[in-house]
Design a protein around this nucleic acid. Structure first.
Lengths: 231, 231
DNA sequence: AAATGATATTTGCTATAGCAAACATCATGA
DNA sequence: TCATGATGTTTGCTATAGCAAATATCATTT
């Protein structure tokens, strides 16, 4: 996936700042950081065993992506998403991922579809095993796999940022029993649409996926979206 | 525009990093940084009279927004947009700004529309005076004014990032005579659509604006999008 | 003349230090 | 008991220093 051209692997090792960023982003989208939580860069630095500089850099990057809030004093917070803002994020994801799925339906090769299907199988297996981290990881892989097929790098970055912004809400989801998808999992609709090169069906499948997902999470946000910054 | 509620102005003065970011972003969207240009944080720091730290912070923020490229060695470049990538950016802007305009058509008050119209008048006056900086600034104000009416903060941030990414291309635009909009300026269509609360027409106006804009810029990109990093 | 190699410079990354504002703690006083 | 004020700590921001890799410069060699 990385390079199908000649030579030149040797990807430089990540900087510390990138590692810290990756760790924090993982914690966010894994729901291990709770909304309202304060992130103190010196404390994090001590915990991670690095100097404050790369931690500060990672925090500011997350702020610029909208994944963290920065109050007037420069303190980073895991934001409490208001229901309205959450709805806007999911709405945009639906529009953008739907567009990517439509394009993917036109471009997908059988191999790519098979790869996606394998990801979805692992997702379902993780769900049967009630292994939340696996479910979350494979779900993310699935969604970005579709975007990769569509070859839309700008859209990909936008959705990555939206994904991170909605990340902390999923710990709410984990507190509630997962739905059983009486009409079948939307991913399966999407896979069929890709097989059939049916762009409209692909878009509809993604939109249904996100809509049903949001329908579960939204009510859980009501109680959660305080306005202040209690510490 | 900032606070129509009681008390509490006193917005803390910007940090140096924010000032540097603002200056660099302005240079990007004003076309004063040429694609392919290398940005060396220590040199910039010396020019701006600050230490390397806030400059580095500003550069990395722009990188995370996609406005600058970072090569493997950690050097920041003003990216050369490929025609395909430019098209993707404008396509996404069309979709997102179109959506915002549609919503703005439902929400806009007469006062808000009047404000927009004043902005557009200044834009046209700047154009008659061939004052490019004014035209660019008022155009940006107009587009984000529409988004502000729509009350879509997440979308706003996304479009800001897209705007910055497409920024360096406008110096290409400045080399070419501006079109005369034989069918009238799309902004005027949009203003009429807002007046009429016609969401579909508003969306169409924005999409036409961006499409015709892109039609001018795209051919200019062909020659410009080298792949390498000449210095 | 071209290639090679040594040296000096540049440059990004990380760590550290200092400052000022914010915050917490606690003693004092009404 | 509660308010006030002094003091020490925390914390974000900026500057500075050191390191290592990359780059540039230049002398040497073939």
């Amino acid at each position: 996936m990385a390079s199908d051209t000649t030579l030149a692997p040797v990807d430089r090792d990540e900087t510390l700042a990138e590692k810290v960023y990756g760790r924090l982003r993982g914690a966010l989208v894994g729901g291990r950081l709770v909304p309202g939580q304060k992130l103190v860069h010196r404390q994090l630095a001590a915990e991670l065993g690095v100097s404050p500089t790369p931690v500060r850099e990672a925090l500011l990057r997350l702020v610029s992506e909208g994944a963290l809030d920065l109050d007037v004093r420069g303190i980073s917070w895991v934001p409490r998403l208001s229901p309205g803002r959450y709805a806007e994020i999911m709405d945009l994801r639906g529009e953008l991922e739907g567009r990517a799925a439509a394009r993917a339906a036109l471009l997908a090769t059988p191999e790519e579809i098979a790869t996606l299907r394998a990801i979805h199988d692992r997702l379902m297996e993780g769900r049967r095993a009630k292994d939340a981290p696996v479910v979350l990881a494979e779900n993310e892989r699935f969604h970005f796999g579709v975007i990769a097929i569509a070859r839309m790098p700008v859209l990909q970055k936008v959705v990555e940022h939206l994904w991170t912004q909605a990340g902390p809400t999923i710990n709410l989801l984990l507190t509630v029993p997962r739905p059983d998808w009486p009409n079948g999992h939307p991913h399966e609709d999407l896979l069929r649409a890709l097989d059939a090169h049916d762009a409209d069906a692909a878009r509809a499948a993604v939109e249904r996926d996100l809509r049903e997902y949001a329908k579960i999470v939204a009510p859980l946000l009501e109680r959660d979206s305080g306005h202040g910054n209690p510490d």
